[in-house]
């Protein structure tokens, strides 16, 4: 999975239009970045990348770039 594909998936999770999210977007400013979104990201990374990510680590992410860093893309 590329970074662009990941961001597209993230847009879907967060109910955003395509192109609305960038690598610099601040997660804390997004209304829908909540526990349900986090669990969806965990599942996405597990299923599509085969990597287990920690929920606490995701909660500490500030930007999309932080997420991408944790996911390892």
């Amino acid at each position: 999975m590329t970074q662009e594909e990941f961001i597209t998936e993230l847009e879907d999770i967060l109910s955003l239009e395509e192109g609305e999210l960038t690598i610099n977007s601040n997660l804390k400013e997004l209304e829908d970045w909540d526990s349900l979104a986090i669990i969806s990201v965990i599942a996405l990374v597990d299923k599509k990348i085969g990597k287990k990510v920690n929920v606490l680590a995701l909660k500490e992410c500030v930007s999309v770039a932080d997420l991408i860093n944790i996911v390892g893309l």
């Binding site: 999770i13 109910s15 829908d32 909540d34 349900l36 979104a37 669990i39 969806s40 599942a43």
Partner: peptide, 13 residues
């Protein structure tokens, strides 16, 4: 509706 959609999205989990 937003909450409903979020709950539906995690159904596959």
């Amino acid at each position: 509706s937003k909450f409903h959609n979020k709950l539906l999205k995690i159904k596959s989990l």
